[in-house]
Nucleic acid binder design. Structure first.
Lengths: 129, 129
DNA sequence: TCAGAAATAGTAATAATTACTATTTTTGGA
DNA sequence: TCCAAAAATAGTAATTATTACTATTTCTGA
């Protein structure tokens, strides 16, 4: 049985109001403004709990820590290989790609994950000068 | 200047002859049959070196350790959420997806990574009984 | 053959995350 | 309103995957 906690509410609220795809560490630093004694374990536990319930997204990619996203609508993510910024892409996601993949596969494919890499607008400008 | 090493040759050969997408730890265990004193650091260093040179693929996904693949031809990977087996998919990869994504993006997108998840043939059979 | 460069083995360190435990908070009844 | 059980927390320790460090060994080309 899930019980209310003000720490969890604060974490959820932070993700809903800051669409920067923060890491657990970033969330931890931010929440500490309001809850100076919150522990990193609590942040991880609640991020996992919220992600398992589908209230937030956990985004894993290559190297580096996982990112979290309050926007659960299907959308693609871009990661800048120079500054690690993660951005939402406007492109419509290919929702049925895994159904296509399943046609030539003996098992069951239920979902797929795609991430895009390159230089973010800011970093691509810097490289031009 | 790159120098020959029998350990590296053995690692490369293992990946070329075992298309099971092994982890560094799996490669380490296997190579130890021939080189009982090889260190895990040597395995990691050579896997990284080979991947950087494009001779093998490093595959990172959600949780769990990275996998390595001697097959450098572009192809998609499937990961079983039940047993963690990684399999190649026969489906043709969408090589130009990141060019499509770049059309609605202010920065530069140079590549993308897609992984598929579900139950492998073996695990999907088990669940039916 | 030999000297310098590169690679190795073995070990220590790091980064991200999870596990553990004693204490505190929440919550649905009495 | 009070209370006990369940759940959550803070603080800490442990784990996992990987990289860094260093003294020794192996390559290689002159």
């Amino acid at each position: 049985m899930l019980k209310y906690s003000k720490q969890r509410e604060s974490i959820k609220n932070y993700l809903d109001t800051h669409r920067i795809h923060p890491t657990a560490e970033t969330v931890y630093s931010a929440i500490r403004q309001d809850f100076p004694n919150i522990s990193l374990g609590t942040v991880y536990r609640n991020l996992n709990l919220l992600a398992d319930r589908g209230e937030i997204l956990r985004i894993s990619y290559g190297s580096g820590p996982d990112r979290y996203d309050g926007n659960t609508k299907p959308h693609y993510h871009f990661i800048c290989t120079s500054c690690d910024t993660m951005l939402d892409l406007k492109m419509e996601p290919l929702m049925h790609l895994h159904e296509l993949a399943e046609e030539t596969f003996e098992g069951i494919i239920t979902n797929h994950v795609t991430h895009f890499f390159g230089l973010c607008p800011e970093c691509s400008n810097k490289k031009n000068f």
